[in-house]
Structures are given as C-alpha cells and as structure tokens.
Nucleic acid binder design. Structure first.
Lengths: 226, 226
DNA sequence: TGATTGTTCTTCGTATACACTTTGTCCGGA
DNA sequence: TCCGGACAAAGTGTATACGAAGAACAATCA
C-alpha cells in the first residue's frame, strides 16, 4: 500500500498535505488503520513518503473532521466511534438529508433529475450483477449528488462529512443493505422529480429510518464498542 | 469569553497551534482581520509571537472550519461570506437548532433548566443596563448551553460551528437585536422545561425565523457582498 | 502597445535540532 | 514477589534554516 500511495502522491500537483489527508481519510474509512491504532508522525511520514510537516497538517484537519483524536504530547490515534454516537449521527443526518431532499425537489432541473435517474439505472444493473461494492459506491454518489443539487454549500459539506463517518462505521453493513435500499432511492428520486418538497422530505426520512435501523442492527456485531 | 481564552492561554500548556487557532478565530469573528484580507504565515507568526509551524497548522484547521480560504501557492485570505450563503446558513441552522431544542426538552434535568433560567435572568439584567455586548454574549452562551444539554456531540459541534459563522457575519446586527430576542428565549426555555419536544422545536423555529429575518434585514447594510 | 523577461515575495516541503512529556524498563530493596 | 524510583527510549512540540516552485508585478524590449 505504501508504494501505491507514493506513486499517487508523486504524480499529482496537489499540495502534499491534501494528498496525505485524503489518503489518511480513505485509509481510516477502509479500515487500513483501525480504530484505536496509534498514528505516530514518523510512521505516517514514512507510509506516505513525505516529511513530518505535511503529515502534521493533515492530522490537524483529520482531527477537526473527527477521524483521529489527538492527545497532547502523546500523539494521534484513530478515533473510535462508540455505538452511542451512532444514533446521534443518524438523528442529525435525518434532519439534514431531509432538508437536502426538500431543497433538491424545489430546485432540481430536468438535467439534475436525469443524472439521478442514470444513477438509479446503473444501480439496478449493478444489483443484478451482484456487484455489491459498485452498488454501495453508486449509493454514495446518489446521496452526494442530491446534496449537490440542493445547492446549499453548508448543508452539502456538513452532510457529506457525516455521510463519510456513517460509511466508516458501517462499511460492511452498508454494502450488504445497499440493494434493499434501492427501492427507497427510487421513491426519493420520484419525489424530487415531482418538485414536491414535502413529499421529498418524507421520502428521505423513510429512507434514513430504514438505513438507521439496518445500521443499528448491524452494529451489534460490528466494532461499535471499544 | 475573552477572559476564558486569556486564562487558558496564560495558565496552561495548550499547544501553541490551538492557541493560535483560537486567537485567529476570534480575531476574524471580531473583525480584527477583515474578509478578503491576506494572511501571510510570516505576518501571523509575528502577530502571535510564534514560529511559522504552529501558524500553518492553525491555518489548515481554520480553512476546514471555513474561516479562511487557502489558495495553493498563494496563501490564505480571510473568507468572505457572501449574502447568498446567509440564507443557506440559516436554513441549516433552523433544522439543527430545532432538533437541539427537542432533544434538550427530552433530556434536560432540573439543574439544566436552572442554569438556563440563570442565563435568562442575567440577560434581563444586562438588557436593563443596556449592556448590549453582555447581552449578546449571554445570547451565545444560552444557545451553546442548549446544544450541550441536547447531549448529541455531533449536533453540538456542527451547530456550534454554524453559530460562530452567523455571529461572524452579523456581529453588529445580532448585538442590536439581542434584547428583542430575549422574549423568544424565555419561550424556548419554558418549552424545554416542559419536556415537550414538539413545543420546544416550534419555539426554536420561531426564534430562528425571527433572527433570520432580522439578520437578513441587517445584511442589506452590512458587509455581505465583497 | 504588447509580449517577454526578471525580480521579489511567499508558500511548500525538507531537514535538523532540541526541550519536554510520556512511557517503558530495569534494578535494588523490603 | 512486589514495589518504587532511576534511567533510557520514544515521540511530540516548537523553532529555524534552506531550497524549489509559483504568482505577482515591474521593467524592458520589439
């Protein structure tokens, strides 16, 4: 993995700190760095093939985003989302994504709706192929696309961050449930297309309730507690 | 609040980057650094009497929080919230603070309610003294306290961040309106004390609608555009 | 005038040094 | 065996210096 990252880092022109941050985030979300794992600056610097400075800057942002916890004079460890905060996350997400659905319904252009429909099609296809990873990916894309259509940058960035965390905690569970949630997604896109804000909001709430229930069920066997 | 910061800065051994970040945030919110103003690392390092490293780390976090914009290879400038995003901020805040009010109503202990009542009393007093700055400060404290009582760390941190931004944009306007909003605050605390989530949520929505309207009115003459 | 070339400022990343904390280990004594 | 303290190691926190690269701006030349 270290080599892959180094290749990527060398090729692009983005500031190293951003590349390190992105790599760190995905490494944490993908479970390459497990909750509670210690992340010393030297180690990360070596893993990513950079010096300590970019690593430190990336760590500060990762802390602000809630992916790591930094203990003064003791360094950073991968954050451990406790099962207690799972409900908290979903409660907030529910409100935010409901709002996003409403705004999207009120503002979506025909092209927007078309792009959502395209995602639904691809999702149905991937489901038929039993390509769970792809379904999960499309799932993400759909949600993020709705946020984007909502046209509210604050809402978008906050909900996106929350969404990443949910993915992190329920990486596996979400992938399994993805096909089942597709019917709910169709309802949601239909509602957005209709331009009916209330209806879109209800659809989003229904979807999130189901997702929340599934996630919580899954958490019993997951690594929620630590 | 300023005193708290100063105490911390002097007394404890907080990492310099955190002190710099806090100082930077308040400097921006207080308008010491104006939107669009250029923030070179050297300058900040000199202003705060530290080396460039802590400044850089603080800047990255400040960027993640939306207080500054960093242009690659060109450095940081104080962010310029456009009036377009003001509505966006309030729409999101409305949802989040309504949720906070509901949760607070459902979870508040007698001690929690007492602390809110104490803030209301101090606010009434300060209003009578026409001490607008103090009223605004108590206003903030009250809102943050409700967030804390809600017991949802995600909600709390997100709403707090949004709240800081609102304060930043409407520093002046908020202070003027503060006395008028006090009646709404009393309604809100009453609702929280009653334990009626629906009622608390409605009270929060009413309050934010009024605040939003006032803020928006005020924005016409403020520095919304740049 | 307009394009080109320098010059300067600043960021970005690297490297190094060192104080200070925390942590772990080892050793002697009860 | 267990305890406690000395000691060493590891790692962060901070400062500093340096070179490379980019951006902005001024000056120069066709």
């Amino acid at each position: 993995m270290a080599e892959d990252l180094r290749d990527k880092l060398g090729a692009q022109h983005l500031p190293l700190r951003d590349q390190v941050l992105a790599a760190l985030r995905t490494a944490i979300i993908d479970g390459d760095y497990l909750p509670g794992e210690r992340l010393t600056e030297d180690r990360l610097a070596e893993d990513f093939g950079v010096s300590r400075n970019p690593v430190r800057e990336a760590l500060r942002v990762a802390e602000a985003e809630g992916f790591v916890v930094i203990l003064p004079r003791r360094g950073a460890v991968v954050a451990s989302p406790s099962s207690g905060t799972i409900t908290d996350m979903f409660v907030v997400r529910e409100r935010l994504e409901a709002l996003a659905a409403r705004l999207a319904a009120e503002r979506a252009t025909a092209a927007d709706v078309a792009s959502l429909r395209a995602l639904l099609d691809q999702g149905r296809e991937a489901t038929q192929r039993h390509d769970l990873a792809r379904v999960a990916e499309l799932n993400s894309t759909l949600h993020l696309r709705i946020l984007q259509i909502s046209g509210n940058p604050w809402l978008s960035s906050i909900a996106k961050s929350l969404y990443l965390h949910v993915q992190w905690v329920f990486r596996l569970g979400a992938a399994e449930r993805a096909p089942h949630s597709w019917a709910e997604h169709i309802q949601l896109v239909d509602a957005i297309e209709s331009g009916d804000g209330d209806r879109a909001e209800r659809a989003a709430l229904d979807h999130l309730d189901a997702a929340s229930a599934a996630a919580y069920e899954n958490a019993e066997g997951g690594y929620g507690a630590r």
